[in-house]
Structures are given as structure tokens and as C-alpha cells.
Nucleic acid binder design. Structure first.
Length: 450
RNA sequence: GUGGGCGUAGUUCAGCUGGUUAGAGCGCCAGAUUGUGGAUCUGGAGGUCGUGGGUUCGAGCCCCACCUCCCACCCCA
């Protein structure tokens, strides 16, 4: 048989035990914070009906959806001379989920009779995007989402920010939380007389700190705004000072713009809460923050690591009518998503993982041969019953080889049960760190390793 | 989708203006050391130089195509 090339698809990864220990550290930290804030876990399938996913993430998002070919004779009765966009939905009824928020909205609508509102759920699962991989960007990656649905209270927004603060505080990552509000962006668009160009305006404004004011103006021009409209944006670019000051100025600018005033009011309330909450991390109002996912309608969040150059490591926002698409209108939700893989990259670059995360076994028994092995099996059973991670080296290999194995695996203790120990019913325990060893009964062994 | 870079042993890389049998460190296996690991020393295995074509007396090196991975843009976790 011909050998097959060993490889995995572009943008996917295998995880070694060391990496898994570190990933689980991240997941455990996030999960424990979610639980602390009274969120409950759910899971949804990797595959969703494509009709559930399409059109929720904007034009770009649709392109990045992994589509799954129908099973059976999927070509039957399909006119393949048509345009790709027409053919694709006919031969692909399902796709891999792109995020956890849209499937969650579907979940809520589908199980509305079993869900108690306001509902708080968390979900730690992989998502897939047919993006071109690069630093901090993968085709398969984990999102850790927490959403509350069925309440418009801004207390929810505050709690999300508090969770962000707690997670990154525990992980030891310095972050800056950027907050904006889609209603403010809509207000700006309305104010300059181009409410239908909201997306174009926000995408251009979003690039302000990256490409500079002149290039933003050029991009707005390219996107079809006239000079008068572009000039009308000047007071927005000229905003200065802290959140309170900016919001005060904006409020006046929005004298005749109701959405804008509503957005400013929400932000004022939220920033008031945040001030009272005395968080450890930085929180700032960033009017250039737009976020592409087009289902957001209120607050939007993005978290950047301050000491590592990488895309955002957490993001989210409020969506007023995501469930409406599935036939359940007027249910507002708000949530955030932690990017576990990017957080992993940040911790790696900062060298900030705690020591000793992986521990295959606490003690390993040296294998001297058949008779001794039987004695070890009995002792190991007792250790395991006491919850002590125990390993018996499977072969009566050379001592050097067995010791080397224990050493490389970082097993802290090695136990010897040879002829003399068997006779006395004892075990000789060696501390692999300092090399010391002592002979003891099984009872005191359990006591020591517990 | 657009642009840039890389590809040589398990791995990290070296390999001169094209010239005999392609090297090193780490890792791996064995031994020095038959109930004691990390250090040291000795020996050994391991490569169709990403794939295919071309130029040449001769290609790891030059040219073309393809593939892969990495990086940037777009967008995003």
C-alpha cells in the first residue's frame, strides 16, 4: 500500500499534551469566571443548516463559511452552468458554524419553551472560518462565549466587562477594553445625512488609527460619500478628552438625532457603572470601534492585549433582533467571546503560563519483572483508589530507560518494589527532584503522596 | 480575494561564483554503568535537497510551473 502524506488541512493544528495542559488552563480559568457569574453551559452541533448561517455576518462572512457538500447524488438535477452563488446553495445544505452567537440565537428560538428568561449561557466550542491563516488566525479555533438574552438592562453590559476584567486579571494579561455603541455610529451616519451608508462609514472610521485621517477621508470618498458629508464628520474626528467629555459633546451634536442620543445615554450609563465597579483593567470609549459582524445594534466591545501585537483577543456586543430572523422578535441579547487560541499565543509570547501544568502521573513504579509487577499492581490499585495519579512502567526494561522516562515526563516520584521491599511489604520512594529516597509502608506512602 | 517571503535528516539550520561520496547542533538508538534519571564520553541509524519540467559535461545552488507553510492587506477570535 502506498504511504499517505502526513499532514492536516491548512489552518488546523494538532495539540500535544503540553499544549493541551496549557489550553485547559485557559479554558478552566474562563469557565470558572463564567460559572461565578451564574452562566450555564450548552453545546450546539458543529454543523448548522446553511440557511441559519448565511447573511448574518455580512458579505465577507458569507464567503468565509465552510460549506459541506450534500451526501448522496448531490449533482442530480443541478444546472452547473449557473453562477457559483446559485449552484452552491443547491449542493450544500449545511455548513460549519462560523461563530457561537448565531447558533445560540437559533438555539434560543428552538428551545424557547425550555429556556427560562433572562437566560445566561456559556459555550466553549470550536468554530471554523475559511480565512487565509496567518499570525493569530486559524481556520479552526475555539471561542468561549457568554451571552445573556431576554433583558435589555445595561447591568448585563457591565457584568460582561467585569468578567473580561476578571479573566484577564487571573491569566495575568494586561488588556484594554474598548467600548462603543452602534447607535452612536448610526447617529453619526444620520447626522451627516447618509443613514444608509452606516456600514461604509463605520468600516472607514474603524481604520482611523491605522491609516490616518486623510486616508479615511479618501476611503469615504471611494465609498461614495460626497465632500459635504465627509466634512460633516470633522467634529466627530475632533472629539477629545475622556469618555465623559466626548459623550457630552456628542450629546449636543445629536440634538436632532434620536438614535444618537439614545446611544450616548446608554454609554453614559454604562461608563457610570464601570466607574463604580473599580476595575483593574483599562476601559476606554473608542468611537472608531466598529466591528464587522452586522447583527450588533447597541454596545460593542473589543479587548486588546497591551503587551503583544495581535488582533483582538475578545469581542462582543448587543444584538436586539438576532432571534427575530428565526421567528422570535423583540428578544434582546448581549454577549462576549474570548478567543482561546489568541489568548494562548499571547500567554506564550509573554511566557506567562504557570509552571507544572502538565503532570502525567504523581508516582511511577519501576518494573523489575513478573513477580514484582504483580505486587505493584496491588499497591497501584490502592494509590489510585486514593486519587493519586499512578503509573506502572509497562515493561521490565533497563532501569536507566525507566528512570529516564520518569525524568522526561516530569513525574515527581518513582517507587521501587523489588525483592527486599516485597519481603517486608514496603515501598522505596525516590524524590526525583532532590534525589532523596526512603523506604516506607504502603499506608505512609499514600499519606505522603496524597 | 490581493501582495511578499520560505521550503535541505525527527527538529533547528549551514552548504562559497554551479564541481567527486550533502554537513553541524539538538533529538533518537546502543554502549561506558546488570537496583537508580538529569552531566560527560564513545559508537550508530537516519536525506529521491517540497514536486514536476528546463538550462548545463555536471544542479541543493540558475530558469519556469505547481504545491506547501509563514507574513502582510482585507476581515476578524
Amino acid at each position: 500500500m502506498a504511504t499517505v502524506k502526513c499532514s492536516i488541512p491548512k489552518g488546523t493544528r494538532d495539540f500535544l499534551p503540553v499544549e493541551m495542559a496549557r489550553r485547559n488552563y485557559i479554558f478552566d480559568t474562563i469557565r470558572s469566571v463564567f460559572k461565578t457569574f451564574a452562566f450555564e453551559p450548552i453545546e450546539t452541533p458543529s454543523l448548522e443548516n446553511l440557511s441559519t448561517l448565511m447573511g448574518k455576518y455580512g458579505e465577507e462572512g458569507d464567503k468565509l463559511l465552510f460549506k459541506v457538500l450534500n451526501s448522496g447524488d448531490f449533482m442530480d438535477g443541478v444546472d452547473f452552468t449557473q453562477d457559483y452563488h446559485k449552484v452552491a446553495p443547491q449542493i450544500c445544505e449545511r455548513g460549519l458554524r462560523y461563530d457561537l452567537t448565531v447558533p445560540f440565537a437559533r438555539f434560543v428560538v428552538q428551545h424557547r419553551d425550555q429556556v427560562v428568561f433572562p437566560f445566561r449561557r456559556y459555550q466553549l466550542q470550536p468554530v471554523w472560518r475559511a480565512d487565509r491563516p496567518q499570525k493569530g488566525r486559524y481556520r479552526e479555533f475555539y471561542q468561549c462565549d457568554a451571552d445573556m438574552i431576554g433583558s435589555t438592562s445595561l447591568l448585563n453590559e457591565l457584568e460582561l466587562v467585569q468578567m473580561i476584567d476578571m479573566v484577564f486579571g487571573r491569566l495575568g494579561i494586561n488588556v484594554c477594553v474598548k467600548i462603543n455603541n452602534r447607535k452612536v455610529l448610526a447617529g453619526i451616519a444620520e447626522m451627516i445625512g447618509a443613514p444608509e451608508r452606516l456600514v461604509d462609514i463605520t468600516v472607514a472610521i474603524d481604520k482611523l488609527d491605522k491609516i490616518g485621517l486623510d486616508n479615511v477621508r479618501a476611503e469615504l470618498r471611494e465609498r461614495g460619500l460626497d465632500e459635504k458629508q465627509i466634512a460633516a464628520l470633522d467634529p466627530v474626528f475632533a472629539l477629545e478628552g475622556d469618555a465623559g467629555l466626548k459623550l457630552g459633546t456628542l450629546d449636543k451634536m445629536f440634538e436632532n438625532v434620536e438614535v444618537g442620543r439614545k446611544g450616548v445615554e446608554e454609554l453614559k450609563t454604562l461608563f457610570g457603572y464601570i466607574e463604580a465597579a473599580a476595575l483593574k483593567c483599562d476601559v476606554e470609549l473608542d468611537l472608531t470601534l466598529a466591528r464587522g459582524l452586522n447583527y450588533y445594534t447597541g454596545a460593542i466591545f473589543e479587548v486588546k492585549a497591551k503587551d503583544v501585537q495581535i488582533g483582538s483577543i475578545c469581542g462582543g456586543g448587543r444584538y436586539d433582533n438576532l432571534t427575530g430572523i428565526f421567528g422570535m422578535p423583540d428578544v434582546s441579547g448581549v454577549g462576549i467571546s474570548f478567543g482561546a487560541d489568541r489568548i494562548y499565543d499571547v500567554l506564550t509570547e509573554l511566557n506567562a503560563f504557570p509552571e507544572g501544568l502538565e503532570q502525567a502521573a504523581r508516582v511511577m513504579f519501576i518494573n523489575f519483572g513478573a513477580a514484582e509487577q504483580a505486587a505493584c499492581v496491588a499497591i497501584a490499585a490502592r494509590l489510585r483508589a486514593s486519587g493519586i495519579g499512578t503509573l506502572i512502567y509497562p515493561d521490565a526494561a533497563k532501569m536507566k530507560k525507566q528512570m529516564e522516562f520518569a525524568n522526561r515526563k516530569g513525574i515527581p516520584y518513582v517507587a521501587f518494589v523489588g525483592e527486599s521491599e516485597m519481603k517486608d511489604g514496603t515501598v522505596t520512594l525516590k524524590n526525583m527532584q532532590d534525589g532523596s529516597q526512603e523506604t516506607m509502608t504502603v499506608d505512609s506512602l499514600i499519606e505522603k503522596l496524597k
